[in-house]
Design a protein around this nucleic acid. Structure first.
Lengths: 144, 144
DNA sequence: ACTATTTCGGATAAATTTATCAGAATTAGA
DNA sequence: TCTAATTCTGATAAATTTATCCGAAATAGT
C-alpha cells in the first residue's frame, strides 16, 4: 500500500510529534531506534519531510528534530504521505491509467472509487496530534 | 496500490474472459496489444496465472489463452490479485508490521481496518465475468 | 515427418526502491 | 577558537520490480 519510505516517515513523525509535545527534541539515532528503522535511510526521509515543512531540524550538538505545536495540530496524515509517496495512492486509477473517470472508466473504476475516497478522507482527517496522543497514552505501538 | 504486474494481469484477464465468452482463444500478441502492455512481461504474468489455474494456455498454431465459462463465473478479482501480489494489500498492516491487530495496534490500525476490509470485500465479491461483460458492452475501457 | 506458430522457461538487463557510507556544513559549549 | 555532536549531501551499493531476449518444447496443419 504505502512504500517503505512512507511507513518509516509516518512512524518517525508520530514519534517526533509525541516527543515534541513533551518539549523534547529528538535525534536521528533515537528516531531510528524507537521506530525500528534503518538510520541512514530514515535520515533521507526526515530531510525530505523537513523540506516539505512538516518538521524542523537543527544541526550540531543538542540538535535533532521537532514538530512545532502548531504543525502538530494542522499536519494531516495525507500531508506526510503526499510528501513521500505523492497522492497517487488515493487519487490514481487502480489499473494505472493517467486519466480514468466516470466518462472513460477502467473496469475497476466504479467499484474502486468509494474505497479510494474513504482512504483519502481518512488520511485528510487524521491529524498527527491524534496519532501522537494515542501513542503517548500507550494504546498504539511503533515497533514490536 | 497494485503492482504493474498485477495491473497487467487484471487487464489481461478481463480481455481474455471477454474473448473466451465469445468463443475466441486469444494469443499473447493480441492480449498485449489490446491491453497496451509489454509483450514479454505479460507472458510471464499469464504463465503465472496459468499455474494458479485462473486461465488455460495452449501452445502451437491456433494456440493462446482462454478462461473457461466456469472459471469466468467463479474467479474473483481477489484471486487474480492474490496470484500476483499476494494478499498483503488487503490483509497487511498499513505500517508494514507482521502482526498488527486490536490488541497490539499500530497508530493507523483502527482507522485503516475499515478501508482494508472494504477493499477486501470489493475484490472478493467482484467476478471476472462482471468486468468482462461491462467491457464487452463498451462501458469500460482497457486502454486509452 | 516437416514446418510454421505459439507458449514455456531461463538468462539477463534496465529501472526503481531501499539501504549504506563518508565527508561537508552547522551548531553548542568549553 | 577549538572540539564534539549532529544533520546535510552526494556517491554508491544492494534488493526488488519491471522488462527484454532467445532457445526449447509443444502443437496444428500439410
Amino acid at each position: 500500500m504505502f512504500s517503505k519510505a512512507c511507513e518509516y516517515g509516518i512512524k518517525a513523525c508520530v514519534y517526533i510529534a509525541m516527543q515534541s509535545a513533551e518539549g523534547q527534541r529528538v535525534s536521528l539515532q533515537d528516531i531510528a531506534k524507537y521506530t525500528d528503522s534503518p538510520v541512514a535511510f530514515t535520515a533521507k526521509i526526515l530531510h525530505q519531510l523537513s523540506k516539505n515543512e512538516i518538521l524542523e531540524s537543527l544541526r550540531g550538538p543538542k540538535g535533532g528534530f521537532i514538530i512545532t505545536p502548531e504543525k502538530n495540530e494542522t499536519i494531516k496524515l495525507a500531508d506526510i504521505v503526499k510528501a513521500i509517496d505523492g497522492d497517487s495512492i488515493y487519487m490514481g486509477c487502480a489499473l494505472g491509467f493517467g486519466q480514468c473517470d466516470a466518462t472513460q472508466p477502467c473496469p475497476m473504476h466504479e467499484r474502486f472509487v468509494q474505497i479510494r475516497t474513504d482512504l483519502k478522507n481518512m488520511l485528510e482527517n487524521t491529524t498527527l496530534n491524534e496519532l501522537a496522543t494515542e501513542f503517548k497514552v500507550g494504546t498504539t505501538f511503533l515497533r514490536r
